[in-house]
Design a protein around this nucleic acid. Structure first.
Lengths: 225, 225
DNA sequence: GTCTATAAACAGATAGAC
DNA sequence: GTCTATCTGTTTATAGAC
């Protein structure tokens, strides 16, 4: 009935709609409450589907978790892919620095954004805190490529080898300073006396995070001489 | 029977031993697996106590969580208390900077240390990720005082007001860069090709974290002129 | 205080009607 | 594909013996 054979943009079938609704609801609940704390009934209700549909589409709760991981990877690949593909060779140091700070700014937006895309981050953070079958998917699909990319930009900006221990650990510290604004969100809100992180506050955070990165970059360059 | 009336060092009764064993086991399990994913039976077995003892001593699972929070606060207060009480007034900038970097080094040891004290950190991070009745206890007992302390040292080192938005956000970024080595531990291990974080690796992380702090400090001081 | 038995609620998985 | 009824196991909390 709804089948019109278009090759390029596939028309979402009725089943696909249910499937996606389940993934979206699960992603949100897994991220905010945790996998074990979320019941399949809760997910089905939030997705306006029935409990049986989880078993039908994903084989079970664990399968749904993995489907969520794939969905996160695919979505991030779509939005961040183009920027990731710019070859780092032949980049002058100051352009590499600009790309790096821009990447940090984007990360702050993603991490701090309340709804929509921001749901991905808690899910991934929980996966990495408590490795499961879905960790490999998000690690290889997001963590590893993003970290590697940052390391390459760092090399172009400072001259330090991208894969040296020092560079890799430094990049983790740079990423960590941003991610904490999601993990410790309630502590941040309470300590700052904020009720939410609006755009202006997100800009302040981004400004400080990129400022930090530039300061560290500068210190390393000066030392390298 | 075991009651010898010594006022200062109270002899631990049989009940106190069970109580502490339960808290310790729960702290470890809540931290590593999460509150909901941990069953009371599991805790009782790990503590070599019976299930009923949790209801008896803490009223239930939720009460045990709060007892864990109090235990964490008390322990941290004992070990970090003395350093926290050094008055920040009249501190010359370079001494404030030294105190700040020393505090970061200690935080790295605590965060990266696998067993013992390191069990506190995952517990607190989970609490802050998913606020519960125990969050207030750890927030007011640890998060808030530590953050405030860092802000005061920052003021002495840079001249920026301790309670300005900029300072408070900066301190969060400084703390976040360290905490991520616990949250993203498995990602760090995998990306670094490490099987564990031994003392030498912990020193590398501490060196980079303190180096970052000094670089940011320097940039801010230069800008302030 | 310790320990066991049990109650009442809830979990995820499954079979089968539609 | 959707939806419901049900099975089986597990959960926390509780009552009561010792």
């Amino acid at each position: 009935m709804t089948d019109s054979r278009q090759p390029s943009p596939p028309i979402p079938s009725n089943a696909d709609v249910t499937r996606l609704a389940l993934i979206r609801a699960a992603l949100k609940l897994f991220g905010s409450k945790g996998f074990e704390a979320t019941s399949t009934r809760e997910i089905a209700t939030a997705a306006r589907a029935n409990i049986g549909s989880i078993a039908y589409h994903f084989g079970g709760k664990e399968g749904l978790r993995e489907a969520c991981a794939h969905h996160v990877v695919e979505t991030i690949r779509t939005v961040a892919g183009p920027a990731m593909r710019i070859a780092p060779e032949d980049l002058p140091p100051d352009e590499a620095e600009t790309l790096l700070t821009t990447a940090i700014e984007r990360m702050v937006s993603l991490v701090v954004a309340s709804p929509e895309a921001g749901e991905f981050v808690p899910f991934m953070l929980r996966e990495v805190m408590q490795p499961s079958s879905a960790l490999d998917i998000v690690y290889e699909g997001v963590f590893e490529p993003v970290h590697t990319r940052f390391c390459q930009l760092w090399e172009r900006a400072t001259g330090e080898p991208a894969e040296s221990e020092r560079t890799r650990v430094t990049i983790f510290s740079l990423i960590g300073q941003v991610l904490y604004f999601r993990i410790g969100r309630v502590a941040v809100l309470r300590r700052m006396g904020w009720d939410a992180i609006d755009e202006g506050r997100a800009r302040l955070i981004a400004e400080i995070a990129t400022g930090n990165a530039r300061a560290i970059l500068k210190a390393r360059r000066d030392k390298g001489r």
